[in-house]
Design a protein around this nucleic acid. Structure first.
Lengths: 203, 203
DNA sequence: AGGGATAAATGAATGGCATTCATTTATAGC
DNA sequence: GCTATAAATGAATGCCATTCATTTATCCCT
């Protein structure tokens, strides 16, 4: 029986739904409706809602830009990769809790990204046994920064408690009109990680 | 009417429930039951379940160890703070998605932590306008690493796709028996951040 | 061409969830 | 002792993911 539904279609519909209604709007019922089908029909193709999230994750991973590792100096390639990774997942933070703990087995796009990055590190002269820890640390930073990027601008407003936190409040004010420096912070931390890890390269 | 319930009691009960049953077990019904009360009674004291999570967060924040900033050299104080912060939130990752986006207004413990850290950075000679970005970057790293710490050991098992990811698979094997180097990665990244940010200090 | 296996879609039902609300209960202040 | 008010109750609501028995349509084999 030729089915109306398949994983590619479900993935595309889920992505479209998320971009229209956000992750709160991504329910099995709404997803089914957008595909013109009963909710229970989805379960012939995915085992659970978490499976749908995995499909979405795989699609997003394939959009992360690892292309710099073939062409650019290592520092620039890492930066390009990290910015692209963060920008993509800033719009999909609800996935992070799922991904971060999700085995990579049977996730070809995700594995392909790791392979490209690992190869780039090898070519840059990293000792083999330092590469995975570097990637893990960078990923942790990227995921954390993705949350920051979606935070409200006034997240650090100390309000009526300002008097009891004078140094913090002054440090906030010294930033000027920008009161949540998520982009500056990301760039500073990334510079530090790139510099620190870059020193691990052998001749 | 002297009430059986108050915010301190709700917070304590929520923490106990989480440590017994995990965050899946933290439902308004279960929380009410553990307090010997009807679920609807909770709504006289908190506006929503998110409010309960905020109470828990505040309690956890007060446990983060910022004490090193008074006594230790800046590098050691940051490390101590970061490890304590990560260890606490590793056991509470479902809070991270909430916290990361939560305004700090009316969160005295959280603000107190920021104040202590800011003061430590000032004492160490940081320019005032660099402190908040450094803290934001460190926090992003810590939150991301907290997710890592709970990941299953075989998260990077490439399975049957191993042949198509030779460099990644080899890099994994070079780690030896440990196949998810969350602690090594955390320490390496933290070293890089501490070194990179430390260089921002003025005379 | 026909018939049986099978993949896919349906609709109804289930159980859990946060939250609301009208009502009752008990306390504190005058 | 009366009244205003804070707090607790229990029933109801609406949303959610998921299950299952049943129906529908297609493919393959003879």
């Amino acid at each position: 029986m030729g089915s109306v539904l398949d994983k590619a279609g479900i993935t595309a519909a889920a992505l479209a739904l998320v971009s229209r209604k956000g992750y709160d709007g991504l329910t099995m019922a709404a997803l089914a409706k957008s595909l013109g089908v009963a909710p229970s029909a989805l379960y012939n193709h995915v085992g659970s809602k978490d499976d749908v999230l995995k499909l979405v994750e795989e699609d997003l991973m394939s959009q992360v830009d690892s292309s710099g590792f073939g062409t650019l100096p290592w520092e620039d390639a890492v930066r390009k990769w990290a910015y692209s990774y963060r920008d993509i997942f800033s719009a999909h933070t609800p996935l992070i809790s799922v991904i971060a703990v999700l085995p990579v087995t049977d996730a070809p796009q995700t594995l392909a990204m790791y392979e490209a990055v690992t190869e780039g590190f090898l070519r840059a002269g990293f000792p083999e046994d330092r590469i995975i820890p570097c990637i893990v640390a960078l990923e942790a930073y990227i995921f954390g920064a993705a949350f920051d990027a979606t935070a409200p601008a006034d997240i650090f407003d100390s309000g009526k408690l300002a008097e009891s936190t004078p140094h913090f409040t002054a440090a906030m004010q010294s930033l000027g009109p920008v009161n949540y420096p998520s982009d500056l912070a990301f760039s500073m931390g990334l510079d530090a990680l790139v510099a620190g890890f870059g020193a691990l390269r052998g001749g």
